[in-house]
């Protein structure tokens, strides 16, 4: 019994002790969840009934993938173009995407918001408070 309650480890190995314990708890929980699900499904009589949908019905493909693409693009251009240029570009494009049309008003609004916000952030953070910007 005493052996079971003792956990011996060498100093050089001490970094693996806790992650191993946590990982085994995770696996145990996962097994429990699966068993629970199977029992629940068996009771309801729909053991093989899978209708899990990742996206909500008729989701906005353009806006969703557009957001993902623009976010990655923003990350890539940040150090390349510098904070001001890449932020203005990113904000302008993503605002147009969210408004969802290319009317004059939408373009003007996006342009104003992106330039104004980027400059204010650049000035307040970068110049006044001396915070490192890309």
């Amino acid at each position: 019994m005493n052996d079971f309650l003792t956990l011996e480890f060498k100093f050089s190995e001490s970094h693996t002790v806790f992650p191993k314990i946590v990982l085994s708890i995770l696996v145990m929980l996962l097994i429990l969840i699966v068993i629970n699900q199977v029992i629940q499904r068996y009771k309801d009589g729909k053991l093989t009934d899978f209708n899990f949908k990742f996206f909500t019905g008729n989701y906005d493909k353009l806006k969703f993938y557009g957001t993902v693409a623009l976010l990655i693009g923003y990350g890539l251009t940040l150090e390349l173009l510098g904070f001001l240029l890449s932020s203005i570009l990113f904000m302008f494009l993503i605002m147009l995407l969210y408004i969802g049309n290319l009317k004059r008003k939408a373009i003007l609004l996006s342009l104003a918001n992106s330039i104004l916000t980027s400059f204010i952030i650049w000035f307040v953070f970068g110049q006044m408070f001396d915070i490192t910007l890309p």
């Binding site: 990113f90 904000m91 993503i94 969210y98």
Partner: peptide, 11 residues
Amino acid sequence: IYPIIIVMCVV
């Protein structure tokens, strides 16, 4: 508001 928030998050 959302574009502003994204830029603030990145900064």
